[in-house]
Simulated scan of single mutants.
Amino acid sequence: MGQIEWAMWANEQALASGLILVMGGIVATAGQFTKWYFGAYSIGAGVFVCLLEYPRGKRRKGSTMERCGQKYMTRVVKVFGPLTRNYYVRAFLHLALSVPAGFLLATILGTACLAIASCIYLLAAFRGEQWVPIEPKPKERPQVGGTIKQPPSNPPPRPPAEARKKPSEGEAAGAAGVSGGPQENPVPVIDEVV
């Protein structure tokens, strides 16, 4: 059985947590809760988490499905280098971002989800995983000579493969030696009636 890549789980969990933080922050801010400023903070923190977590990392084995438009955010995340690639940094960053949002009831669910994502990232870091961007593979052009093995010998329309079996060399030589002269046209000519 293969080894689980924990970073994939943490990425999905953190992205969902960011969205939950944004929604809870909107509810708290629009509802003018007593500590609505924590709701405004949750909106900013949720957007930051979503932007950081949107580009998926490349899996060690197998293929990774890229998110729509991920290549643009991948460039931004790559710029910060080890700060965004290291899962220890992400684990502690998510944990620090989740603490202030925990003081408000509307954002407590996002806080809990982000804390869980932080724990999963910490586990991924202990396992030696790190974020690697998904790079597009250069497309290989097919070689023209390599795709055609043997060109067709007779023009279209061609009969099925069973019907166009060629006679062996011995049969072909025997048939040419028997007739001795020019071969006649095997197609009968139909005279037109006028």
Rank of each mutant, 00 (worst) to 15 (best):
L19M: 13
K165L: 06
P155T: 04
A16F: 09
T34I: 08
C119V: 13
F80P: 03
R75F: 09
E53D: 14
P167A: 09
F80M: 10
E140M: 10
L19S: 11
G181A: 14
L104W: 00
F48I: 08
S63F: 14
G81C: 06
A125Y: 01
P188I: 05
G69Y: 01
P186M: 05
E184F: 09
K165T: 05
V132I: 15
W36T: 04
T111I: 04
A117D: 02
G110T: 02
G62D: 07
V132D: 12
V76W: 05
A124T: 02
E5T: 00
T34H: 13
S168F: 07
S118G: 10
N185V: 08
V22H: 00
C119P: 03
G62W: 05
G44T: 00
S153V: 06
G128Y: 08
T74W: 04
E135F: 07
A125F: 02
Y87R: 08
G146C: 03
R164N: 08
F33S: 14
G18Y: 01
K61H: 15
V178N: 11
E53I: 00
L123S: 07
G81Q: 07
P182D: 15
I190F: 09
L95S: 02
A28E: 03
Q70T: 05
E184M: 14
F103N: 01
W131I: 00
W131R: 05
C68R: 14
T111S: 10
K35Q: 12
G174P: 02
G81F: 04
K35E: 11
T64G: 03
A117F: 02
V27P: 03
P159E: 03
A45L: 01
S179A: 14
A91L: 00
G57R: 13
L95M: 06
A10I: 02
S98V: 03
R127E: 12
V187R: 11
R60N: 15
G174W: 04
T74D: 11
M1C: 11
G174E: 08
Y54Q: 04
G102S: 05
Y54P: 02
A161H: 12
P151C: 07
T29I: 01
G170D: 15
A112E: 00
V49Y: 04
I134W: 01
